[in-house]
Design a protein around this nucleic acid. Structure first.
Length: 485
DNA sequence: TGTGCCGGGGA
DNA sequence: TCCCCGGCACA
């Protein structure tokens, strides 16, 4: 009787059916025709076979066991079979629809696998069926649901979300329901059966993202993490195609959505590759397929990929800075290039220890302008190069010196150290070119006196008794060039 | 008052 | 150009 109801209204209805590719995905389609299959009439009720126009344009036939009805009404959705006979949802199994597909495809009625026995399952079935009748018209929060039904509701809700996605990319490859749902389900502890995601966000190939219905994949790398079904440890069909990925991915600290601007990327360490992807799964796949030459999906992986990629943490702010440094903007705009690795203000910009391979070329581009900075003053003599090794001039000494547009002279003095003591007036080398390039800081317009420096000067550092250790400028009562503010 | 440094001047 | 110093401004 119910079946007739459904049959009468099923034509033209949107249904969900397992992908004909057999990969476990669920795709949507529209019922085009219904016919009865009589061959099993002797053994059981006759089956309805639905001809479904799939979203990719193909026509497929499904039995009622295989497809699920989807309509605007959430409560009317669910496996067609379950809505008719409440059979599949009451078999006491935890499998989400993808893994149910396997059993659904085998049209033979399966013996109930509920360890509690068929009677128990049937009774639960009746209860659930009764409750559904109520909830289909009134949205009553269910006080209790069987675990199976909870899963099914979520799955059907997921299907609706999938259907609502109007992007053409949804068509092919078949939509993997998990992909667009795991972000929210996972947090709730729900983990449908696994399917290794084929989509990953990439810098170099953003179009790889196969499912645009996930609004912000870069922020949640783990949203692509394949699922695992913890409640069914023995189910072999749960581990569909990510035997390596899943365990690996779950073991390693996949970055979660970050509140701050840190972004974790995965960089391929293969020689001359350097591909950067946002997910471990993606980079593993990349390495496996591109470098290891393993075309098979992740099931033939032995985890070797792990050796060929590394995790890099990117501060998006730093990236932005780096990008700006790549821009043709004058270096004078740049914030003072720190002494590269020792700047405490950028502890992350240079990457953590793992990403010692320089993180990005962006962070290295800035220091190239560093060396233009130090030839500013015409009478910047060679004195700075003669900082005595015995001096107590250490970074701690200049720690109070706020790093300004002029980077600390330390690096420069070391680089151009001249063995001759101070008196080599090789001023000819002091090109004012850098001044022009640097557009030196607003040194209070010519007439105004330069604001007094806050930092230590040669006089303070070395004292009057060591006046010969002062920088030339200090000796000449000029602006100190060694401890520039 | 000590310090930093500009401006000027002498060698 | 190098070097020194008077003198001013600032802390």
């Amino acid at each position: 009787m119910k079946r007739r109801l459904v049959k009468r209204s099923i034509l033209g209805s949107r249904v969900y059916a397992p992908s004909p590719t057999g990969d476990g995905a669920v795709i949507t389609g529209v019922v085009q025709a219904v016919k009865q299959e009589n061959k099993d009439a002797s053994t059981g009720p006759r089956r309805n076979v639905y001809t479904v126009l799939m979203q990719d344009g193909s026509l497929n036939e499904y039995s009622e066991d295989e497809i699920a009805v989807g309509s605007a009404q959430m409560t009317a959705k669910g496996p067609l079979k379950s809505s008719l006979k409440q059979q599949s949802s009451c078999n006491g199994r935890d499998h989400p629809p993808e893994s149910q597909k396997g059993e659904a495809n085998s049209l033979a009625p399966e013996p109930p696998e509920d360890p509690r026995g068929p009677d128990h399952a049937r009774s639960v079935c009746l209860l659930e069926q009764k409750r559904k009748v109520v909830s289909s018209s009134i949205d009553v929060p269910h006080a209790r649901k069987s675990e199976e039904e909870v899963d099914m509701d979520k799955v059907t809700a997921a299907m609706v979300l999938t259907t609502l996605s109007t992007s053409p990319l949804v068509r092919s490859p078949p939509v993997k329901v998990n992909e667009c749902l795991n972000g929210s389900w996972k947090d709730g502890g729900f983990t449908p059966s696994s399917y290794s995601s084929s989509g990953y966000w990439s810098w170099s190939a953003p179009s790889d993202q196969s499912n645009p219905s996930t609004p912000s994949p870069p922020l949640s790398a783990d949203s692509f993490k394949p699922f695992r079904l913890p409640s069914a440890p023995g189910a072999a069909d749960d581990v569909i195609d990510e035997p390596d990925g899943s365990s690996l991915l779950f073991d390693e600290p996949i970055p979660r959505k970050r509140k701050n601007s840190m972004k974790v990327m995965f960089k391929c360490l293969w020689k001359n590759c350097g591909k950067v992807l946002s997910t471990a799964a993606g980079i593993q796949r990349h390495i496996r397929t591109v470098h290891l030459g393993r075309n098979c999906d992740s099931e033939c992986s032995d985890g070797e990929e792990d050796f060929y990629y590394t995790e890099i943490k990117l501060n998006t702010d730093s990236v932005a800075d780096g990008l700006s440094s790549l821009s043709p903007v004058s270096p004078s705009v740049l914030s003072p290039p720190p002494p590269v690795t020792s700047d405490p203000r950028h502890p992350d910009a240079n990457g953590n220890g793992k990403a010692d391979s320089n993180t990005t070329p962006l962070s290295r581009s800035a220091p190239s302008t560093l060396y233009l900075v130090h030839t500013d003053h015409a009478y910047q003599a060679t004195a700075p190069v003669t900082i005595p090794s015995s001096t107590n001039f250490t970074p701690s000494n200049c720690s109070s010196v706020s790093i300004s547009w002029q980077s600390p002279p330390v690096t420069f003095t070391g680089a151009s150290a001249s063995p001759t003591h101070g008196k080599t007036q090789s001023f000819g080398e002091q090109r004012p070119q850098s001044i022009a390039v640097l557009s030196s800081p607003p040194r209070a317009s010519g007439s105004l006196r330069k604001s007094r420096g806050e930092g230590k000067k040669c006089r303070k550092v070395y004292g009057m008794e060591n006046r010969d250790m002062w920088c030339t400028a200090c000796r000449w009562k000029k602006a100190c060039q060694r401890f520039v503010d």
